[in-house]
Design a protein around this nucleic acid. Sequence first.
DNA 1: GCATTAGTCGTTTTT
DNA 2: CGACTAATGC
Length: 813
Amino acid sequence: MPIEPQDDPPFDLPPNTESGAGTPGQAAPAHAQGSISQRALAKRPMSSSAAPYLDALNPEQRAAVEALEGPVLVLAGAGTGKTRVLTTRIAHILETGRAYPSQILAVTFTNKAAREMKERVERFVGGSVEGMPWLGTFHSIGVKILRRHAELVGLKQGFTILDVDDQLRLMKQVIEAEGLDKDRWPARQLAAYIDSWKNRGLTPEKVPAGEAHAFAGGKGRELYAAYQRRLKELNAADFGDLLLESLRLFMENPDILAQYHNRFRYILVDEYQDTNVAQYLWLRLLAQGSEKPNICCVGDDDQSIYGWRGAEVDNILRFEQDFPGATVIRLERNYRSTAHILATASHLITANENRLGKTLFTDGAAGNKVTVTGLWDDEEEARTIASNIEALSKQGHRLNEIAILVRASFQMRVLEDRFITTGLPYRVIGGPRFYERAEIKDAIAYLEVTANPANDLKFERIINVPKRGLGDTSVKRVRELARASEIPLFAAAQSIIETEELSGKARRSLSDLVRQFERWRASAATMPHTELAELILDESGYTQMWQADKSPQAQSRLENLKELVRFMHEFDTLQGFLEHVSLVMDIDNASDGDRVSIMTLHAAKGLEFDTVFLTGWEEGVFPSQRTLDESGQAGLEEERRLAYVGITRAKVSAHISFTQNRRNRGLYQSAIPSRFVDELPEAHVEVVEAKTPFGGAYQNFGGRFGGNPYGASRFDEAPAAFQSSYATPGWQRAQKQWQSDSTTPPRRRAAPRTIEGELVASSTSESSFEMGERVFHQKFGYGRISEIDGNKLTIDFEKSGRKRVVDSFVERH
DNA sequence: GCATTAGTCGTTTTT
DNA sequence: CGACTAATGC
């Protein structure tokens, strides 16, 4: 392994200089051909002993790793070893001496993916290599580039990165400054427009006239331009800018772009199907350095589920036109799921027109068929799943290996309620992220203003948090002074307290706050940053504010603050911590015990579980009516890909369910089974009857009973096959009962006692709580016990009303 | 300036 | 139904 040269200057010496190629000072050509020695090296067959890591790959994976020259598209189906290919490919480039770590650009979408790849490459190559400086998310690499050339895009080196709150605050100001009614033209909407323009690589001038008129009667473009100007004044960039501005940098400065062409000998892109136009253009520019760029994009068109966020499936579909002579390699051997599951997912996805096409297969066991269950309503669905999980748990399955995937988060509530009452430990994945919580943002704002007094938006965030009598009017005065004298808000605050401009009370508290910040800044030089953080949180009254708060979440907010300080220990400096925080929004959620996971289908991408429950397969819910309305056929295909993603998360069993009735937005509505249910391959699916009577919602099933308004069903063409599988005794029984019961849906009977009884019996015996006792629950807050039944308590919560809860979920208060 | 109440509106979400 | 926002009253 060659020794890593300094990351700067940008022109690294090519490796293997002793072979005569790439003498010092001669910039190595970045294009595919490379030096003679490199070409010779490339042709040299790797003996197994020289590259044992290659032996562990299947032929397709190996081909994807070894196709180092020229553009390569790796179509990696779910569970086919995509990350392995990517990391092995990097290792291979390094091991064969084709490039230094600093000459490889490897981009991912999420920090998690970047982290994982980094760890795995390091494991491969050994700790000897000092990381990979250009392995990261699009955004983190964008920042890195922008910091080097900030002046060229109108920023200064130490620019700050805005979060969503800051963005909205700024946009609100821009809208008001433009003299527009902020109610008619909400900042959120403008933010959505600007975001989509940035996603498409459009600077204000390039916004199509038609779209620019969509907002505020034609002012969209001006507002966008004004917003960008304000960002520059504040020396700040939003997330979109991290990409868009580095794109602009490259387009306007060919010399700079050339430096990066020279630097990046190999480009790797993960999850290519999720790239948006801006990212695509960015990659193209970087790859343009040679005719046959060594760019390797890995992705799966069937897993493109972020179209609504600007991702362009077309990028992956068009790859071969974009990069002529590209090698396309399909990874179709699946190592995750059993055959029935794979066949179900594969078959479902064939209903999509717009795809490159690939078929997953496995040498593994057939396993169990995918089950489909129709249920009366969402509560019955939750009960059934809870009892199935309970049964699995008794058989020794780990809860960590079980997940429930929903289309939309409103579906989670029933499940949570049920799990709480039965005492089934669960966790919700992808809820509010750590750094998105208000208390964390506030704390960070304090730290940020301490470290960087010029960060106006962060200062504005906490100027009156906790409440210190500095309302809108006072803040407005300070802001006006700041704008008038073109100084930061904090500086304006410093000078305004010397004047009579503010009322006595406001002046005093602002002056206190300013002095506190000055003191904290002085302490920052001598005090460890974690200690400083504690001091600030304490002296500002912030901790106290939450201690005084009696809402159910206050306690966990305080915990979060503690967690934040604990986390800060991982950084050497306050600056280092703040830089990390602005880019990395998630925090490693420690796996705390054995719990069932509940999450959206989107959040499930990239994960796998032994058992997966897919709920709510009803028209309108899944596929989502809104997507259908907004995006038509393309939307439907994206929904179908979502179904594909969901099914392929399962390793050994997948259970699909739909209900006849679902409570949503307060009203109870009837539903018909999703068209996706009809699209499932009959041979790999088993209809399981619901345990409760009338549980089957089969009267609409297959488009033959009650009519499916969404066109002919596949099963219409094969009625025999349909009947063989779906006309189970249970189904017939349900059908008969249904018909004899007239057209009125049967009333749902009371909660099945057997399930309750079973669960109660399986838990601890008698509750130690007493009637009338005041208790606290993490989710529902405070309440009083009104009934005790074994370990089950009925509690009247002050905020959430009456609930039945297992006693281990509440604590005395 | 702040707390309480009426009104709105309701996918998916990294960075 | 319930979370979040805007408007109203103290």
